[in-house]
């Protein structure tokens, strides 16, 4: 392979004047984590609401949940980001559209909300399955004790359902982190974006991508380890989760 390796490149100053190339990548990593964190909060909250709606006896709630999930699941994330970023400001009333366009950090907010909503559909599906996997008698027992529907979900169904779906939620969280890379297309300089610009400036393509790869692997390892601890922490003595 006649490629000129130059691992020292990371410690050379980047052309942006923001320090070395390594600083550039780390700034990208920070933005990846920030975007993913906000997206995950959005995904968890809206996904939980929609997931619960899909388990309620009300037909209306069920169909809303169904339509919501289908809407966000059947379009590529990239297309969804384009819709929020390019299309939404144009079809809103003029003033609102203008305000959106002038928003500082528009790529960041679009990415966080876009990825968050995209992932919320998946969280909803997981939670629905988690609640569905509980014995029917649990809901009945809660009801028979006089708990209202809200109390039944809050104190009985959700604490168990979330414990059961913790492993798949871990993968969805990792997916959220990975999916923020799609926002490179709307100009978000997250980790992959920074690796790409490092490659364009320095032509050291493989060093740049190797570094980004290692950073993604590290993030994965940290998240997986943290979630293992969380799983152990919330585990119930004597109760065997999983199938």
């Amino acid at each position: 392979m006649n490629y000129n390796w130059n691992w020292g490149i990371f410690f050379q100053p980047n052309p942006m004047g923001t320090g070395t190339y390594l600083d550039m990548l780390l700034a990208g990593l920070a933005l990846t984590l920030k975007t993913a964190a906000l997206a995950w909060v959005i995904a968890l909250i809206t996904g939980s609401i929609v997931g619960v709606m899909r388990t309620l006896p009300s037909k209306g709630a069920y169909w809303f949940g169904f339509a919501y999930v289908e809407f966000f699941r059947n379009m590529p994330l990239l297309v969804q980001l384009f819709l929020w970023f390019f299309v939404l400001p144009e079809i809103l009333p003029k003033a609102a559209g203008l305000w959106l366009k002038q928003l500082p950090n528009a790529p960041f907010w679009t990415a966080a909300i876009g990825v968050g909503l995209f992932m919320s559909a998946r969280v909803a599906v997981q939670l629905q399955a988690g609640i569905g996997s509980l014995p029917r008698g649990q809901k009945m027992a809660a009801t028979a004790l006089g708990l209202t529907t809200v109390q039944g979900y809050r104190y009985v169904l959700l604490p168990m359902a979330f414990r059961i779906i913790l492993p798949p939620l871990t993968s969805e969280f990792l997916n959220t982190i990975k999916n923020t890379a799609v926002a490179i297309t709307i100009g978000l300089l997250e980790l992959t974006g920074q690796a790409r610009s490092m490659q364009e400036f320095s032509f050291q393509v493989f060093e740049a991508f190797t570094a980004a790869t290692i950073l993604y692997l590290l993030v994965n390892a940290v998240v997986v380890t943290a979630m293992r601890f969380l799983e152990r922490w919330v585990a119930i003595p004597g109760y065997i989760t999983g199938k």
Binding site: P135, G137, Q138, M140, A141, A142, A144, L145, Y155, V156, P159, M160, R163, I236, Y239
Partner: peptide, 12 residues
């Protein structure tokens, strides 16, 4: 008060 066939204690 109601008692069920499968106990239905809250496992968590």
């Amino acid at each position: 008060g109601m008692v069920f066939q499968h106990f239905e204690l809250f496992p968590h």
